[in-house]
Amino acid sequence: MIEINNLTKKYGNFTALNNLNLNISTGTVFGFVGPNGAGKSTTMSILATLLSPTTGSAKVGGYEVTKHPKEVRKLIGYMPDFFGVYDHFKTVEYLDFYGASYGIPRNERLQVIPQLLELVNLSDKKDFYVDSLSRGMKQRLCLARSLIHDPELLILDEPASGLDPRARIEMREILKELKTMGKTIMISSHILPELAEMVDEIGVIENGVLVSQGKVSDIQNQLSSNRILNIRILENKERAMEQLRDEKFVAKVEADEKGLQVHFSGEDKDQFELLSKLMADGHKIVSYSEAEADLEDVFLAITKGA
């Protein structure tokens, strides 16, 4: 659905995107992760035909965004990171305006709009003025707006930014629903860890360069060479810490009220040997487990925190 080849975007001397290569297949839910200013919004703006790249190419559904912008716009539903609404429109009128702007006939709009309002749980707000809606409701309305022409691809730039936990959960549920509808979704979000179960692939971008791309599980496996071991010891914690620091694959040992956190770079076999050694040395081990890396850990591990 999306093919990006050697995409570069420069603003004067500043390079926002540097030879970005990215492929997203149809039906995939793609999480786009990266620190602020990494180039996520720039990439999404280029795909939405709002920015022209300096060099390289970007295709959506086989259409080059710079050559066939009108066809690309038919295929995408775009939700920017910051957006406004027309204050003097009612919710229904707001959706009707965008439906008409996409060339949807009036009778079709009359059928689609109630369905979309139901999808985003705003049916009871259909006659409310848009400026009277809460931020979470406006976000959901904007999502409904991006779906009005039944696009194949949804480009959602930080759709849950600034939302309270409840509104985030509501947004996540809607996105899950969209996934079941078979939409291809490209999403950048601060709540990506919360979306872990619905994201098929992630791409990590930093300083305009795609640092990593692949299935969530594959990237988590990459990280397993830098696993964290949680060890709870009944007594003599200090002696155990001293001993662990001298071990071959141990980079760092930290302690808190829960126990010891051991940064371990060895493989499964080495991890087993470490446990055996600790037991043989008489340490009273209550629990010994490997911390599960979530997407947030993946992100922090891959990016350098620029």
């Binding site: 703006s45 939405a48 035909t49 709002l50 009108k70 716009r73 038919k74 995408i76 775009y78 920017p80 910051f82 957006f83 406004g84 609404v85 027309y86 965008y98 702007s101 996409y102 060339g103 904007c142 707006r145």
Partner: peptide, 13 residues
């Protein structure tokens, strides 16, 4: 300024 232009520009208009 109201951040409605980008959305309008992604429509078929």
């Amino acid at each position: 300024e109201k951040q409605t232009l980008n959305i309008l520009l992604t429509t078929q208009q």
